[in-house]
């Protein structure tokens, strides 16, 4: 596929020494510029799928077509602790230098210029995520991969980071694959939600959302209620145990 879309045909992915695949018979097409959320219980293979798409794990049966210009956000910020904020961005840029555009991006992510020469260890957790978010956008990605990037953050900080992500996605329109186990997060952000479940894991449900973004909490709540009334199995724990987000 060309033009920044993503096409995945995964026949099977095994862990070494296991004869039951983690993932099997999974076919996923994401249109260029689409914001796709991948939801499933912890340990179902979402991150495994993401690692395969990111080129971190080549040990699977199948075919993945992804644009080479990729940015990624991990569960933890994963900044190099020995590089300053500026050099952490420079690391991933083509010429190895932190361009004015990249600095502007840091500014847009609410990292004040005074922090550019600090080391990640001198920043707060929220600031580190902002730098990681800036790093992901700095490479001008056509595909942005996010692996539960906002877990273990205070709710307001996570909320602000979601807004920043949405803002930059709207401006740059990369294809987004957002992995999360938080249904509300997926409902707030995605064009489409794909639910993974079962063992070996495959796609159990797809949901297209046409509500405009940003979506207010009430809209998310309404979507959630609608979804759970038509698919009560999502509540049964078979697909979404959702242990960490006991919300109304």
């Amino acid at each position: 596929m060309s033009g920044g879309g993503l096409s995945v045909e995964l026949q099977a992915k095994y862990w070494p020494g296991s004869d039951v695949p983690v993932l099997a018979g999974l076919r996923l097409d994401v249109a260029a510029g689409e914001f796709l959320c991948l939801v499933g219980p912890s340990g179902c293979g979402k991150s495994t799928l993401l690692a395969a798409i990111a080129g971190l794990d080549a040990d699977f049966l199948g075919r993945i077509d992804a644009p080479p210009e990729r940015g990624m956000l991990f569960q933890t910020p994963r900044l190099m602790p020995w590089l300053t904020v500026r050099d952490n961005l420079a690391l991933v840029l083509a010429d190895g230098r932190c361009s004015p555009a990249a600095e502007a991006l840091l500014d847009a992510m609410e990292i004040p210029p005074a922090l550019l020469d600090r080391y990640p260890g001198q920043l707060s957790g929220g600031q580190q995520r902002r730098v990681a978010l800036a790093r992901a956008f700095a490479v001008r990605p056509r595909l942005l991969l996010l692996d539960e990037p906002f877990v273990s953050l205070d709710a307001p900080v996570a909320q602000r980071l979601r807004e920043l992500l949405l803002e930059h996605w709207m401006r740059e329109r990369p294809t987004v694959l957002f992995v999360t186990h938080d249904l509300d997060e997926a409902l707030a952000l995605g064009d489409r939600i794909v639910f993974l479940g079962g063992r070996p894991a495959g796609i159990v449900l797809e949901l297209v959302l046409s509500e405009p973004r940003p979506r207010a909490p009430e809209a998310v709540w309404r979507l959630r209620r609608q979804l759970l009334s038509t698919h009560p199995e999502l509540l049964s724990g078979r697909v979404i145990p959702d242990p960490e987000t006991p919300r109304p």
Partner: peptide, 24 residues
């Protein structure tokens, strides 16, 4: 390995990966 994975995901060139991610 997680930091090396960052270099892989962002396609950092091999020499830079060595000097700025691995050797430090």
């Amino acid at each position: 390995r997680e930091l090396l994975a960052v270099a892989t995901a962002f396609r950092v060139p091999p020499l830079r990966r060595l000097t700025r991610v691995y050797l430090p």
